[in-house]
């Protein structure tokens, strides 16, 4: 039964090949997108942390995004 399922009546290579290519491509795009996002978040958080205490306070108070990125990056650390 498993043999039949894997061979797909002689079309196994084509069927599994198509599904494999699709999921590998999707996985790679997900990995690349996720990595880029994390890199940007880390760089952004680093730049905020490098600001003087006064400026940092202004940025966090005025930008919800900055405070969210800072809190999420501190969680990952």
């Amino acid at each position: 039964m498993i043999q039949n399922f894997l061979s797909m009546n002689g079309y196994g290579l084509f069927v599994w090949g198509s599904f494999a290519i699709t999921f590998i491509a999707c996985g790679l795009l997900y990995y690349k997108t996720f990595k880029t996002l994390k890199k940007y978040e880390k760089d952004f958080a680093k730049e905020i942390n490098e600001l003087s205490a006064e400026r940092k306070k202004i940025v966090i108070e005025n930008s919800k995004i900055a405070s969210q990125v800072l809190s999420s990056s501190s969680k990952t650390i």
């Binding site: 997108t33 996002l37 940007y40 952004f44 730049e47 930008s63 995004i65 990125v69």
Partner: peptide, 11 residues
Amino acid sequence: TEIIRIKKKNL
């Protein structure tokens, strides 16, 4: 990512 990129530029 694009939003963070813009915010980074503004910073």
